[in-house]
Nucleic acid binder design. Structure first.
Lengths: 136, 136
DNA sequence: ATTTAATTCGTAATCATTCTTATTTGTGAG
DNA sequence: CTCACAAATAAGAATGATTACGAATTAAAT
């Protein structure tokens, strides 16, 4: 996934192309890991000193909405990462040191649906936390 | 699990018996679901108008520490529930309407360790969200 | 180029959680 | 039972992430 493809997808959905959005997308394309809102803000402020949290959050949520990003809560902060929908649904190992992730192709829901008769499953979360080989 | 058993366990660990703790435990014993800190506070204030958030959080964390409660983050708030360690490690279906839970005996980590060679797994989270039969 | 709706800025408000200090309370020893 | 001390609590302020809002700016369509 590159920045242009992502912006194209936004255009199709009726969202405008802005410098701030380009920059936000660049950050995610360059870093294959979950990033907190405040880190995005810090990064962007080097180019656009005036950006506000409002802009960051609005765009992060919008990008999550159109499935360009996926979100999770880590240590009380929302974190986002590029949603690599080149391969299908999957989960992640998340390094609690460096934040880098490793895809887990296995989804536990495959083995489980029969035991939830009568329950309307809307969503699920499966994440593994620990230290990656580099940080270990 | 009843309140007296829980207080006994606390005493063994050197924690004192206080009216606030009794009341907190009562709430959890009576409700088999994840509860937010502020709901605990509201409930307790009917008996102890002066309780502070500090007391709530301090006790919730302490109770989680001694494995009487388990915690999770739902909608940006920490939630707690009685940890029924009568049966071993397990996960939960959580109803997004009423908050009630259903135990899932299956743990995905059993099927996965071989694919994480070199990774130091410290923790994992597996939760299923949706509507229970009553709320559906 | 003009218009229009989306987007951003700047700042203030909100909400959950944590911290600080003084006071109160439970517990075990005498 | 009473005392002393450590532990626990109360009260309110501080923090930090997130959300909200009106005014100003900007992208894109006509």
């Amino acid at each position: 996934m590159n920045v242009e493809t992502a912006l194209q997808k936004l255009k199709e959905k009726g969202y405008k192309r802005t410098k701030q959005r380009e920059r936000i997308l660049e950050i995610f394309v360059n870093q294959d890991q979950y990033i907190a809102a405040k880190e995005i803000l810090k990064e962007i402020q080097t180019d656009f000193p005036g950006v506000s949290y409002d802009t960051i959050y609005r765009n992060l949520y919008m990008l999550t909405d159109v499935d360009l990003l996926e979100a999770t809560e880590l240590g009380g902060e929302k974190h986002f990462r590029l949603c690599c929908d080149t391969h299908g649904h999957h989960h992640h190992f998340i390094c609690t040191d460096c934040g880098k992730t490793k895809s887990i192709e296995f989804c536990p829901m495959d083995s489980i649906n029969e035991s939830l008769n009568g329950y309307d499953v809307e969503n699920h979360k499966f994440e593994i936390y620990g230290k990656c080989p580099q940080c270990h």
